[in-house]
């Protein structure tokens, strides 16, 4: 399983990378929506993308919209992981094609729950 971690915070990417590695994902990191889209275009073999909202160049919402316009990426599961907590924003992201939404701050168990909801085998809880 391969996951793309899209967040402009190095610390957040590090935390997400550790959690995903423990679950069994190989990860690739990107610090903006534009960088993530570039990586995805070069290599589309990702099952999952964890995507922040507020990032320079291309934000997470714009990234979701862009990804959902490309049929090659249709099977990519997108989990927004963001500090945006307004109902309108959550609705907007889901309608644009994000598969799930997690509000920061998050816990390891919350990530596991969401990935399980997206159909990934996350193993048993510790």
């Amino acid at each position: 399983m391969r996951a793309l971690i899209v967040d402009d915070s190095t610390a957040t990417r590090f935390i997400l990378k550790s959690i995903l590695k423990e679950i069994g994902f190989a990860t690739v990191e990107a610090n903006s929506g534009a960088a993530a889209l570039h990586k995805l275009t070069e290599d589309s073999h990702f099952e999952l993308a964890l995507v922040d909202w507020n990032m320079p160049e291309m934000n997470g919402y714009e990234f979701v919209v862009a990804v959902r316009q490309v049929s090659t990426f249709a099977s990519l599961r997108i989990l927004m992981v963001t500090s945006e907590t307004d109902v309108e924003q959550i609705t907007k992201a889901i309608e644009a094609g994000a598969n799930e939404y997690l509000m920061k701050p998050f816990t390891k168990d919350a990530i596991r729950d969401k990935l399980q909801m997206l159909g990934f085998d996350v193993g048993t809880h510790a």
Binding site: T85, D86, V87, I90, T91, A93, I94, A98, E100, Y101, L102, M103, P105, F106, T107, D109, A110, D113, M117
Partner: peptide, 20 residues
Amino acid sequence: AQHEVNRGLPAQYLVKYFDR
């Protein structure tokens, strides 16, 4: 609390059945 709705609740249900 936010950490509770983060656990196991589909985002679509969150916006449909909860008010912030």
